[in-house]
Design a protein around this nucleic acid. Structure first.
Length: 886
DNA sequence: ACAGTCACG
DNA sequence: ACGTACGTGACTGTC
């Protein structure tokens, strides 16, 4: 017996679209409907094992139903673009599944399906399952035909046969159209009889069988009901007609064309890769088939653990090694436990437990020398991390030519995982396990048996090798070749060196500061308990909320998902109401300093060196900035004097040396001036004016002497807003003014800085057109949500489109300066060392005799790192610690 | 693991 | 009308 599955394509696509959260691939295509559709198809194939398959689609805007009834489906919301753009993908997907698909101008999918079920009914010897979200289709149910109605979600369906319809409605399948004739259907704009809903309609049908039966017997009805039925008889007849599926569509399709014999793995895998359905790719087994190019099956690879006696063989094959992987346990490479190295050659892969390199044998030394030699071109995964790991063990890795991790970041900086496993999926390479699956996670972390470990790490090295060519191609295609080789890759080594060097912390001073904070906190804590009249955990927002808003009955300003908001903004508004508020604000400030900057920092100081070694993350921030961890040295307090004092504990590592800081002044606004070519803004920087004062003069239309501190403050906020991708709401929040006033400021700003307005308009348009924005150095960020119909998502993407080229170009510039400064220090044989980067600031430690040289050199390098049409300005300062150098 | 809060540019 | 300024990381409390 044959089994035919008929899919109502439009209905299912809609279902999937609204049932699933937004989802898009890296080129900005929305894919949630396609994803839902895919899971549905896979489930049907597995559970039903059909012999025939067809997906039917609606075609043409106007069907015969519109000709009969112009309002048909009127008032229905237009299909959002996020969905309509998925239909072509859906077509491709069905093709990749090897299934028949069909549409016919002037007919809807349900008419095609209705016609096929009629043919099946006549033909006999076949079972049909129709999959749809449309209850009307129940009218097609027969002995041979069942309807699978989607329930919540997408893959869950309820299978209706005659018995179930009888049980649920007490109706025969053909009476479904009578039901709809009476009750109508708001979503298709089918009227029915007003005031008749499902309950009444069913009662009437149980009594009179059909619409016609009800109308004939209208006289027997009572009161309002009688009136309604008589008045709307024509609507009822028409509604029934509209609801009736047309089952005589002139189909030319031959039965054989619907035959389904399964999909071809490579075609489907290719489609999944295009759509970036990573979880499906990983879950499904696409092996088999005759394709020589492996597919995703776990090919067996030649892998060997290098034992003490095998070192000579290893040394022999070193020239053939093309890929290297360094594995260690722990997130922080500065204190991670080394596991070992995997060295890949075309013929065989070698796993080298790290102990092999520490045996002091001639062979071990040869391997170390090889690692440090520039005379090779290896592919690696995360060169920066590998360099740090090896550097702590006295090995200075060189000769790395390509880094698939760093390349993956440039190709899509918003991708959060960037795991090797994820990359193999994306590039259709043999499956690789996730680290978590091999090592376990958190407390369960465990290094597996040697053979498992060897196999896994060798597979990693093989994957790195195989990813290299396609990823280089992609980098080239997106114009980021130079960014990679000229900037990011050299930077990785510069960062590793800075981090390994570390920065000295005066732990005694830090502890003393901690004690002062501790006694102050103690005092404030008691003041708070006294003022509140009770003791509670001030650090608990929940308890604090209860005290302030329930016990003390203070007015609630703002709420969070879970309760009352007690953040600084709220507390500042409450300050006049109760003396406890001021204490709480102060307590918060000091307790933050104590926990994060005293205790937190002390934990990160290495006992052996007395230094902290932050880990700069080069592949985290979507804009191209660095981030800093363990500890984060990019958010050390400065704005408030109390916190700023922390900076005193960051000191030079040698007596008599100084800390030198160099800040870019207004780098983002200068970048904006260059990108937008705005005349006024460029002129301001060409004359090196105080940009906020100048903005105030222009926006408020006053002379320099008339600009008071408040005007300057407001102008400064406007400038910030411009950089962030301005909105009146955001500015109004920041300045505590009304939205209208904020909108006025913005309008006045744009009236003066017309080039900036032009840039903002252009960049958003370009983002919509290309799906991404770029920095001056071609760093790219995709913004799939720029075309969203959801206002919030779209607005966010628009602001990001405005901000990313600015913030990202500033990041490009300081990165360039770092690489150039590193070269400069080497070239001039200076002893000064670069210690930190804080987005627009570099920190060095310098010996006394290099202070003047360095002041000049740093400013020169930073100011000329990239030539813009406005000058870059750098302010340099020195002092005995980070606090004094500013 | 997540939410709330707050430190920085 | 919609409701957020852009980009990060660390700590505490709570579930």
């Amino acid at each position: 017996m044959s089994k035919l599955i008929l899919i109502d394509g439009n209905s299912l696509a809609n279902r999937a679209f609204y049932a699933l959260p937004p989802l898009s691939n890296s080129s900005g295509l929305h894919t949630n409907a396609v994803y839902g559709f895919t899971t549905m198809l896979l489930k049907l194939l597995e559970e039903q094992q059909p012999t025939h398959f067809l997906v039917a689609f609606d075609a043409g805007k106007v069907t015969f139903r519109h000709k009969d009834y112009a309002e048909y489906k009127g008032g229905r919301a237009k299909t959002p673009p996020e969905l309509s753009e998925q239909f072509p993908l859906l077509r491709d997907l069905i093709r990749a599944f090897g299934m028949a698909q069909f549409e016919l101008e002037g007919y809807e999918a349900d008419d095609i399906i209705g016609t096929l079920t009629r043919i099946a009914d006549e033909k006999g010897d076949i079972e049909v399952i129709v999959v749809t979200g449309d209850k009307d289709m129940l009218q097609l149910v027969s002995d041979r035909v069942k309807i699978a109605l989607t329930r919540k979600g997408i893959t869950e369906v309820e299978l209706y046969d005659k018995a179930l319809i009888e049980e649920k409605y007490g109706l025969k399948p053909h009476q479904i159209i009578d039901l709809k004739g009476l009750m109508g259907d708001a979503s298709d704009n089918i009227p029915g009889i007003p005031g008749v809903g499902e309950k009444t309609a069913l009662k009437l049908l149980h009594e009179y069988e059909s619409v016609e039966g009800v109308l004939e017997n209208a006289a027997q009805l009572k009161g309002k009901m009688k009136e309604k039925v008589e008045q709307h008889a024509d609507e009822a007849r028409m509604s029934k007609e509209l609801a009736t599926i047309y089952r005589e569509v002139p189909l030319t399709t031959q039965w054989e064309e619907l035959a389904y014999s399964g999909y071809e793995g490579q075609a489907l895998a290719g489609m999944f890769r295009k759509l970036e359905f990573k979880s499906l790719l990983e879950k499904m087994d696409f092996s088999g088939g005759d394709s020589a190019e492996a597919g995703r099956e776990q090919a067996s690879i030649e892998a060997a653990v290098v034992g003490e006696d095998d070192m000579a063989e290893l040394v022999g094959i070193l020239p053939q090694v093309t890929a290297l992987h360094v594995e260690a346990a722990g997130d922080n490479p500065h204190n991670a436990e080394m596991i070992g190295l995997a060295l890949y050659t075309e013929a065989k892969c070698y796993y080298v437990p790290f102990e092999r390199l520490q045996e002091g044998t001639a062979e071990a030394e040869a391997v170390k020398a090889w690692l440090q030699s520039s005379d090779k071109a290896l592919a690696v995964y995360d060169q920066h991390r590998a360099e740090i790991l090896l550097a702590w063990r006295g090995i200075h890795l060189r000769g790395t030519e390509f880094d698939v991790h760093l390349a993956a970041y440039l190709l899509d900086p918003t991708e959060s995982a960037l795991t090797l496993n994820g990359l193999t999926v994306k590039y259709g390479l043999p499956a690789l396990k996730a680290d978590e699956d091999v090592f376990g996670k958190g407390a369960k972390f465990q290094i597996p048996a040697l053979d498992v470990l060897c196999d896994y790490l060798c597979r990693k090295a093989a994957a790195i090798h195989q990813l290299t060519e396609p990823m280089k191609r992609d980098l080239e295609e997106s114009g980021m070749h130079q960014l990679f080789y000229g900037l990011e890759q050299p930077l990785a080594s510069v960062l590793a060196a800075m981090e390994e060097k570390g920065i000295e912390v005066d732990t005694e001073a830090l502890k003393q500061y901690g004690e002062e904070l501790g006694s102050q906190l103690e005092t404030i804590m008691h003041s708070i308990y006294d003022a509140a009249g009770m003791e509670f955990n001030i650090n608990s927002p929940k308890q604090l909320g209860e005290v302030l808003f329930e016990k003390l009955q203070l007015p609630t300003v703002k709420k969070t998902k879970t309760g009352y908001s007690t953040d600084a903004e709220v507390l500042e508004k409450l300050e006049p109401y109760h003396p406890v508020i001021g204490h709480i604000l102060h307590f918060r400030t000091l307790s933050k300093l104590q926990s994060t900057y005293v205790e937190g920092l002390l934990k990160e100081v290495r006992k052996d060196t007395g230094k902290v070694h932050t880990y700069y993350r080069q592949t985290i921030a979507a804009t191209g900035r660095l981030s800093s961890q363990y500890p984060n040295l990019q958010n050390i307090p400065i704005r408030l004097e109390e916190g700023r004092k922390i900076r005193r504990v960051f000191v030079p590592s040698k007596p008599g040396w100084s800390i030198l800081t160099a800040d870019y002044s207004q780098i983002e606004l200068r970048v904006l001036a260059h990108i937008s070519q705005d005349e006024k803004l460029m002129e301001a920087f060409l004359h090196d004016l105080d940009i906020h004062t100048k903005t105030a003069m222009d926006v408020f239309g006053v002379s320099e002497s008339q600009v008071d501190s408040n005007m300057r403050r407001q102008a400064k906020a406007v400038n910030f807003g411009i950089v962030y991708g301005i909105s009146d709401y955001g500015l109004s929040q920041n300045l505590n003014i009304t939205r209208k006033e904020a909108a006025q400021f913005i309008e006045q700003y744009f009236a003066v800085f017309q080039g900036v307005r032009q840039y903002m308009d252009d960049i958003v348009r370009k983002a919509r057109q290309d799906g991404y924005v770029t920095t001056l150095l071609q760093r790219r960020r995709y913004l799939p949500e720029i075309t969203a119909s959801n206002f919030n998502l779209r607005s966010f993407a628009e602001r990001t489109a405005m901000n990313t080229p600015i913030q990202g170009t500033a990041a490009d510039i300081i990165k360039l300066a770092m690489v150039q400064m590193d070269e400069r220090l080497k070239r001039d044989g200076l002893r000064s060392r670069m210690l930190l980067q804080v987005h627009d600031e570099l920190v060095f430690e310098v010996p006394e005799d290099e202070i003047e040289t360095m002041k000049t050199a740093v400013a020169e390098v930073m100011e000329n790192a990239l030539k813009l049409d406005v000058p870059l300005k750098v302010e340099v300062d020195t002092g005995s610690n980070w606090y004094e150098a500013k």
